[in-house]
């Protein structure tokens, strides 16, 4: 860069203008080259770590299952076929794969519920942090991220200690005479939802906070001056302005919930599977890798649909605010 600049300066004055353009072009070219070079490691990692395995799964999903796990190099659409359709094991009739559909429905239902509870707890938290004096906000944000310091497995076991029959909550309730028998919370869908809400809550708080921080609270004051009720301020001013954060948070909670494996495995008691566990089963005791691959790709497509929805609704809301 420096040498080109020097040669340009030595040129006679009348040719300086086209040369300056040349220099700019040269510098830009170098910049592009440098940028490509700098991003190569990241691109390689992305390709190897994301695209590679996906391609392998795509290939596997079109092969036959080996008798003891693994795959056989023989083309078959059984994997994909079995995602949606099941052949009755006893009379060979075909029907919708009702086990898969109910597991899928449970996953979607629990993920939506988790997203909703995260929103209920996360929104006021983000509002609280955003309305603190600026120098104190970092402390609160720091506190929100503390759970991330501990391993997911340990946090999940901690939840188990709280909600088990002889756990903290039941013991306290019984000792105050509020309940006679311990409430069965562990090994229920409720437990799975509590666990996922706890684990993913920071992923809801942080994006909402990011939007809320940019919110001009003078607008809120103005609304009050114009006799808006508290609810109206929330509905007409705050929510529309932090909508991008809300949507981002919801997506960040919904997607990992949909594929959750550890939490339903430990807190759900294994009696009712979620999608992640169904996929796990196919690679383990089920010995059906093609079906497992097809199920994973189905999950991936669900996630992409959710993202598509996000892009569309986020696009709409930013379009509005620019106007």
């Amino acid at each position: 860069m420096a040498t080109t600049a020097v040669t340009a300066a030595k040129m006679p004055p009348d040719t300086a203008v086209p040369d300056a353009a040349n220099v700019v072009r040269e510098v830009r070219k170098q910049e592009v080259r440098r940028n490509i070079l700098l991003s190569t490691p990241a691109l390689i990692v992305i390709f190897c770590a994301a695209a590679g395995p996906l391609l392998i799964m795509l290939v596997y999903s079109f092969l036959s299952a080996g008798p003891y796990g693994g795959i056989e190099w023989k083309f078959s659409i059984d994997g994909w076929f079995n995602v949606f359709v099941q052949r009755d094991i006893f009379d060979d009739t075909l029907s919708i794969a009702d086990a898969h559909v109910s597991i899928l429905w449970r996953s979607v239902k629990l993920s939506l519920l988790t997203t909703f509870t995260c929103f209920i707890f996360g929104f006021p938290t983000a509002y609280f942090i955003a309305t603190r004096p600026p120098e104190r906000r970092n402390l609160w944000l720091f506190l929100v991220t503390i759970p991330f310091w501990t391993n997911l497995l340990i946090r999940t076991f901690a939840i188990m200690e709280l909600i088990r029959n002889q756990g903290v909550i039941n013991t306290v309730l019984t000792s105050f005479g509020l309940i006679e028998e311990p409430i069965q919370m562990l090994f229920t869908d409720f437990a799975v939802m509590i666990g996922m809400t706890y684990v993913y809550l920071p992923l809801m708080v942080l994006p909402i906070y990011a939007s809320m921080e940019k919110l001009d609270f003078r607008l809120v004051e103005a609304a009050y001056d114009l006799y808006a009720t508290r609810f109206k301020v929330l509905k007409r001013i705050i929510v529309p302005l932090v909508k991008p954060g809300l949507i981002a948070g919801s997506i960040l909670v919904f997607i990992p919930s949909l594929g959750a494996y550890v939490t339903p495995r430990i807190l759900g008691g294994g009696k009712h599977m979620m999608l992640g566990n169904l996929i796990g089963l196919q690679f383990g005791q089920g010995r059906n890798w093609p079906l497992g691959s097809a199920l994973s790709l189905t999950l991936l497509m669900l996630v992409m649909l959710a993202l598509l929805f996000y892009v569309r609704s986020a696009g709409k809301s930013t379009g509005g605010s620019h106007g």
Partner: peptide, 17 residues
């Protein structure tokens, strides 16, 4: 046998649905 294993898995999945 792999055939019986397949039936086992189908029952197993149904059991955990």
């Amino acid at each position: 046998s792999p055939d019986v294993q397949k039936i086992y898995t189908a029952i197993w999945t149904e059991l955990q649905k």
